[in-house]
C-alpha cells in the first residue's frame, strides 16, 4: 500500500484564515451556471434574512481543496495525485457561508484503506467562523487508482 497508514488522524491546519468575498461567490456561482439572486445580489439576500450574499452549497469545496492539497502535497503521505479521482463528498452545515465570513479551517485524515486494487483516502475539513462557531464540515473521499 503506497499511502502511509501511519498518517491516519493527521491534521493539517490551514496556514491562514479564508475570507469569503462577494466576488468569489459570484465567480463560483457563474462557474456552476447558477445565477440565483441570493448568491449575487445583496438586497435579495437581505430580503431572505441573510447578512450578505450567501455561497452555493458546494462552495466550501474550495476550503476542502486547500486542506486536501496540503495533505496530498505531503511527500510522506505518498499519494500519486495523477491517479486521484473523487470518490464521494459531503457537506454538513450549521449555517450557510456568507460574504464577510472569515473562516478558520482544519483538515484531518479520517480514513485510509485499500479496496479492490485502489486506495481510499478520506479527509474531513471543519470550518469555524471568527466567533468560534461551527459553520460547515466537508468530507471528501479520494480514490487513488491502482496502476
Amino acid at each position: 500500500m503506497a499511502i502511509n497508514p501511519d498518517y491516519l488522524g493527521r491534521e493539517y491546519p490551514a496556514p491562514e484564515t479564508y475570507e469569503v468575498t462577494r466576488g468569489k461567490i459570484r465567480e463560483f456561482a457563474e462557474a456552476i451556471n447558477d445565477l440565483n439572486p441570493v448568491y449575487l445580489d445583496q438586497a435579495s439576500a437581505k430580503a431572505m434574512g441573510y447578512p450578505d450574499v450567501i455561497a452555493p452549497p458546494t462552495f466550501p469545496v474550495i476550503l476542502g481543496m486547500a486542506g486536501s492539497a496540503l495533505a496530498i502535497a505531503d511527500p510522506e503521505l505518498g499519494v500519486d495525485f495523477s491517479r486521484v479521482v473523487h470518490g464521494d463528498q459531503s457537506f454538513h452545515y450549521s449555517r450557510p457561508l456568507h460574504a464577510g465570513d472569515v473562516l478558520t479551517t482544519l483538515t484531518r485524515i479520517t480514513d485510509i484503506k485499500a479496496l479492490g486494487g485502489n486506495e481510499l483516502l478520506t479527509l474531513e475539513t471543519v470550518a469555524e467562523a471568527a466567533d468560534g462557531q461551527h459553520v460547515v464540515t466537508a468530507g471528501m473521499m479520494l480514490v487513488v487508482r491502482g496502476s
Binding site: I32, V38, I54, P57, V61, D88, F91, R95
Partner: peptide, 29 residues
C-alpha cells in the same frame, strides 16, 4: 465530480427557493 454535485444541488435549491435551507448534502461519484 464537484461540478456534477453543484448542478444536482440546483434541483434542491431551486425547489426549496432558499439555498441556505441545505443542512446536509452528500453524494458518491
Amino acid at each position: 465530480g464537484m461540478f456534477t454535485m453543484a448542478e444536482a444541488g440546483r434541483v434542491i435549491t431551486d425547489w426549496t427557493g432558499d439555498p441556505g435551507s441545505i443542512v446536509d448534502y452528500a453524494v458518491r461519484f
